[in-house]
Nucleic acid binder design. Structure first.
Length: 832
RNA sequence: GCCGGGAUGGCGGAACUGGUAGACGCAGCGGACUCAAAAUCCGCCGGUGGCAACACCAUGUGGGUUCGAUUCCCUCUCCCGGCACCA
């Protein structure tokens, strides 16, 4: 078992803190690491600190650079332009989260888009494997695998070429569609603003040029892009329909993504919702070509079933074909004409890793005026990041540091410039888990020790990483496997995705569009006399702050909580117990401090009970233990049953990582022990001893310090963490009598004590009068069955819903079914 | 907008394979102890009606399947996460 800890230490938060405090990101980062390490140590986690690493250390990031160079050699790295957010006032590139409502967060300036050269990793080369091997991950939550599969987005379709002539040259406008069966309904084509055809048409049409520019200025994020009004403008260019030969106009549409498929789509307004809206807006023809079960089609308004699969109509020779046949036939026809073929397209895009920022891994490339882009030779690695710079928000400090930028070309030795972009921090987190196997290895990123530890048996991460981080890690692992560095293709066998801890977000908008966030701990809520919230003010100045709702705890929104306060006030055991008890790990958690006191009270009660046991109960312990053999008095048997019932449940819950109910089981056991009858003293002592030992073992992973101490104090053993997990005694769960729950038509109609045997229980239920008041009485109890739960038996007597003479009753399914299940059937309770 | 989740008392949550909804805890109320307070201990604690036994309503909304639905299916609403430069 190995539980390591590393610091994912590069990235924006350090730069922002540096700007705010005027200290270099390195100092801020190392101070934070020291603080958090102390905190983790005081919480008592069993972390192997010998393997500690920080991604901002050259000992780590040199291997990012080394691996980048290996990928470059294998053609997995390439350079092309990419779009970034440009703040014209600060003359700097902004991250998406630094752009708020289209404006820079520090300057309030309108953000522009810029195209700049960047390095890309060819993750799409692994798309097929990344998708297929999701099936080899039974230990991953379904929802994460679904999200990844959707993100990779494999779609089978047809690539269709629409011929056109430009300046006497024959060309093809290529589109990709998954609905080639609707090809005969294509009435226009639309291209992205970045498409070469749009650029060409814009040259001679100032209005169109303005529109193309407007589209290019628009938002960069897909989320914002998707919410734009569907707008377009004709290019004046026409292409030829590849089958019908009709002329079709090409439009520029702001809803067409250059990054997906060919950056162009065929418009089939009859069967695509977006195309329908577009055609309605601009008066383009709508031609229905699919018949869905004969339903009447109207072009007045879009109906969701218009996009359903059906049979081709109005499609000439394709009429009558279903989806599959139509796609096959059309693809074959296009192929024969050289105008298309079946094609698989992926939604997944290559991974742009260049960041125009300081606090990251330098990209090991030198730009030489004569040799071009030259990789830094392995022997010169690492390219060390200077640690004394302080960013001021205006551009990348590296680019302003001549001692970093100016260098010699590794090839020709002449003066050259170092690349000043750094790597996306996802690179750091894509393989750090491998490095834990051999953090001291200075000659390679990993060595043979990685074979022993990999893959990671249990990986825990926030659900917010469901796609990007986990996909990048899977990709990187496969790349390292193909480089011969490791032998596994998947990094994480089992995955637990934690829900996030949420907290309220408070902010003030200041002059120039700047936004300042305030920590909820510094904010006081105002209520009216009915207890309704009416506002919030900052404690320090009493002036109002705005609420931005509830969101993930993050540095950028300043709504985090420091667990140190809990530790200082209550101690690590209480803090741990409270955190574990408050909700299951997968669930999101809205932070609240209420409830910590309860955890503390529980541990105090446990402490008291333990000492009460040692002083007054333990002396009564018989020399020979008799629990297994001797019949206990009713009350104490109940106590023991409670202990073992909770042990059984807690064991199940530990295995499914539902720790909040384990804490609850601990509390139930203590409650039961404290309420147990004190006589006979010897039996009581035995039950108490057994119960306490079970309780301490269940509690030991949650609150290890108190468990360890009491375990020793009570003489159970030296080290509670080394003691085996307790076993449920099935005999402790047995009961002579059970509580019978009586149900009539699924409704609770009474309780009764009854013998354990199901047959006897049912006989008594039949004799008893609990059910006699219900219409039908003995006669009406036709279908009855028993279902058991929690050591009990549920008898449900089904009555015909209406008098049996009624015709309606005879035909009703309820009556029929109740006649079918004429006999009493029984099911023994699972737990008894 | 698209993809993935979630919604249960005043609050966090429990309910395993469809079978007693609200375990355990927090807050609240009442009581004991105390000169008093704190701490601790005992009791009550979803809503409506009823002296009570009990009945009816109730797991975001509306529908469906079932003898029986918090649990399965469909619809809608709201909230959270992701949407490729927060990580």
């Amino acid at each position: 078992m190995l539980q390591p800890m590393g610091w994912d230490a590069f990235g924006l938060p350090a730069e922002n803190a540096a700007m705010a405090n005027g200290v270099p990101p390195a100092k801020w980062t190392y101070d934070n690491i020291a603080y958090m390490k102390k905190q983790l140590q005081s919480l008592g986690f069993a972390i192997d600190w010998e393997r500690e690493l920080a991604t901002c250390s050259p000992r780590y990031y040199r291997w990012n650079q080394w691996l980048f160079l290996r990928m470059l050699e294998r053609g997995l790295v390439y350079k092309k332009t990419g779009t970034v957010n440009w703040d014209p006032v600060d003359q700097t590139v902004l991250a998406n989260e630094q752009v708020i409502d289209g404006r820079g967060w520090r300057t309030g300036a309108l953000i522009e888009k810029r195209e700049i050269p960047m390095y890309y990793l060819r993750i799409t080369a692994y798309a097929e494997e990344l998708l297929a091997s999701l099936d080899e991950l039974p230990g991953w939550p379904e929802r994460v695998k679904t999200m990844q599969a959707n993100w990779i987005g494999k779609s089978h379709g047809v690539n269709i070429g629409f011929p056109y002539e430009l300046g006497g040259e024959k060309k093809l406008l290529r589109v990709f569609t998954t609905r080639a069966d609707t090809l005969m309904g294509a009435t226009f084509c639309a291209v992205a603003a970045e498409h070469p055809l749009a650029a060409h048409a814009a040259k001679s049409d100032p209005k169109l040029a303005a529109f193309v520019e407007e589209c290019k200025r628009g938002p960069m994020m897909e989320a914002d892009l998707a919410q734009l009004d569907k707008k377009g403008m004709p290019t004046g260019l026409f292409v030829t329909h590849p089958i019908s030969g009709e002329k079709i106009e090409v439009w520029v549409g702001n809803y067409v993504l250059m990054a997906y498929g060919e950056g162009a789509v065929m418009g089939v307004p009859g069967h695509d919702e977006r195309d329908f809206a577009f055609a309605k807006n601009y008066g383009l023809p709508i031609k229905p070509v699919i018949d869905v079960g004969g339903k009447p089609y109207s072009t007045d308004a879009w109906q969701p079933w218009y996009a359903d699969y059906g049979r081709c109509v109005n499609s000439g020779k394709y009429d009558g074909l279903d989806y599959r046949a139509a796609v096959e036939t059309i693809a074959a026809d296009l192929k024969r004409k050289g105008l298309g073929d079946k094609q698989i397209t992926w939604r997944l895009r290559d991974w742009g890793i260049s960041r125009q920022r300081y606090w990251g891994t330098p990209i090991p490339i030198v730009h030489c005026p004569s040799c071009g882009d030259v990789p830094v030779p392995d022997g010169e690695l690492p390219v060390v990041l200077p640690e004394n710079l302080v960013p001021d928000g205006t551009g990348n400090p590296l680019a302003k540091t001549p001692s970093f930028v100016n260098c010699k070309c590794p090839k020709c030795g002449k003066a050259a410039k170092r690349e000043t972009d750094t790597m996306d921090t996802f690179v750091d987190s894509s393989w750090y888990f491998l490095r834990f196997a051999c953090p001291d290895q200075e000659k390679a990123p990993v060595d043979e020790r990685v074979q022993y530890w990999m893959p990671v048996d249990q990986y825990i991460g926030g659900i917010e990483h469901a796609i990007l981080h986990l996909l990048y890690s899977r990709f990187w692992t496969k790349v390292m496997r193909d480089l011969g560095l490791i032998s596994v293709g998947e990094p994480f066998t089992k995955l637990l995705t934690q829900g996030m801890v949420l907290n309220e977000i408070f902010y003030r908008k200041e002059g120039g569009g700047r936004i300042t966030y305030y920590n909820p701990a510094d904010v006081e809520l105002k209520h009216d006399d009915k207890g309704q919230r009416v506002g919030a003010v900052l404690r320090s100045d009493g002036k109002p702050v705005e609420s931005d709702g509830i969101g993930t705890m993050s540095k950028s929104k300043n709504n985090g909580v420091d667990p140190q306060d809990l530790i200082e006030k209550y101690g690590a055991d209480t803090a741990r117990f409270f955190i574990m008890s408050t909700s299951p790990p997968e669930m999101t958690l809205l932070w609240s401090d209420a409830g910590v006191a309860g955890a503390s009270r529980f541990l105090s009660r446990l402490w008291e009970s333990a000492y009460e046991f040692r002083q007054t109960i333990q002396p009564n312990l018989p020399a020979k233990r008799t629990l297994a053999r001797v019949r206990l008095p009713e009350g104490l048997a109940g106590t023991r049953r409670e202990v073992h019932l909770n042990l059984k449940q807690a064991t199940f819950d530990v295995l499914r990582a539902q720790f909040n109910t384990v804490t609850s089981a601990c509390q139930k056991i203590l409650n039961a022990l404290r309420a147990a009858p004190k006589e006979p003293a010897a039996a009581h002592a035995e039950i108490f001893e057994e119960g306490l030992s079970v309780l301490l073992l269940l509690l030991s992973p949650i609150s290890p310090h108190i468990s360890h101490y009491l375990w020793r104090e009570l003489g159970f053993g030296k080290d509670v963490l080394k003691a085996p997990w307790p076993e449920t005694d099935a005999r402790a769960l047995e009961q002579d009598e059970i509580e019978l729950v009586l149900q009539v038509n699924g409704k609770l109609r009474g309780h009764m004590r009854a013998p354990k045997s199901a047959r006897a229980a049912c006989a008594r239920a039949r004799r008893g009068d609990a059910l006699h008041q219900w219409p039908g009485g003995e006669e009406g109890r036709r279908g009855s069955r028993a279902a058991g739960q929690c050591g009990r038996l549920t008898v449900s007597c089904t009555l015909p819903p209406r008098p049996r003479s009624s015709l309606a009753a005879a035909s009703s399914s309820a009556a029929r079914r109740s006649c079918l299940s004429r006999r009493f059937t029984f099911r023994e309770a699972r737990r008894s």
